[in-house]
Amino acid sequence: MIIKFLLVTGTFFLSLLRSSGKLVLFCARAVISGVRPPIYYQEIFLQIYKIGYLSLPVVGLTAFFTGGALALQIYDGGSRFNGENVVPSIVAIGMLRELGPVLGGLMVAGRVSSAIAAEIGTMKVTEQIDALSTLAIDPVRYLVFPRITAATVSMPFLVCIGNAIGIMGGYFVGVNRLGFNSTSYILNTFEFLTIQDLTSGLIKAGTFGFVIASMGCFSGFYSSKGAEGVGRAATTAVVSSSILILASNYLLTELLFKS
C-alpha cells in the first residue's frame, strides 16, 4: 500500500518535473530564436492585433462589471464602520494592483491560450509545421516568438485600458447608485494612488501575457495526434495558464509589495 502510494506520487512528480523542464527549454528556445534575424515583424503585428486588440471587448466588459461590483461590495463592507468614503480609493487600488491584471489575464487566457494551442496543434496534426521546416522557416521563430512577444507587449496595454474602464464602472455605480458626488468621487479615486500601484499591475500583466502565450504554444506544439489531441491541448493550455497566472500573481505580489 505504502509502496504503491510512493510509486504514484513519485511518478507524478517526475512527470511534473519532466514537463516543467521541457517548458523551460521550449521558452528559452523561443526567446533565443528572437534574438537572431530574421525576425517576422509582420507576424508580431498580426498577433498584437489578434491577441491584444481583439481581446479589448472581453477585458473591457470584465473590468467594467468588476469595478461596479467592487464599489457595491466596498460600500456595503465600509458602511459597517462608517467607511463608505473609501470606496473610490479602494476600487482604484484594487483594480490597478490586483483585479485588473488578474481578471484580465484570466479572461485573455480563456480566449487566447486555447486559440493558440488549437491553431498550432492543428498545424502540427496536419503537418503544416513540418511544411514550414521544409521551406527553411524555423517554426519556433515563426510561430512561437511572435505570439509570445505580442502577448507580453499587449497585456500591459490591455490591463491599462481595463483598469480605466474598471474605475469608470466603480464611478458609474458610485455616482448613480450609491449617491456619491461626481467630483469628490474622482478626487478620492486619485488621492491615494501611487505610481507603484500602476507599475506593479503592469509588470504582472506583462508576465501573464508571457505565461498565456507560452502555455498556448507549448500545448499546441506538443499536442498528440488527432482531434482529441488538439482538444486536450486547448484545455491544457487554458487550465495551466490560469493556474500559472494565479501562482505567479502571488509570487509577484510577494516580490513587489514586500515592505
Binding site: 503537418e127 503544416q128 511544411a131 521546416s133 521544409t134
Partner: peptide
C-alpha cells in the same frame, strides 16, 4: 540544404 529541397506532404499540408 532545405532551400534545395521540395516536399509534397501526404495531406498537402497547405497553410490554411
Amino acid at each position: 540544404f532545405l532551400s534545395q529541397f521540395g516536399m509534397l506532404f501526404q495531406g498537402a499540408a497547405l497553410f490554411d
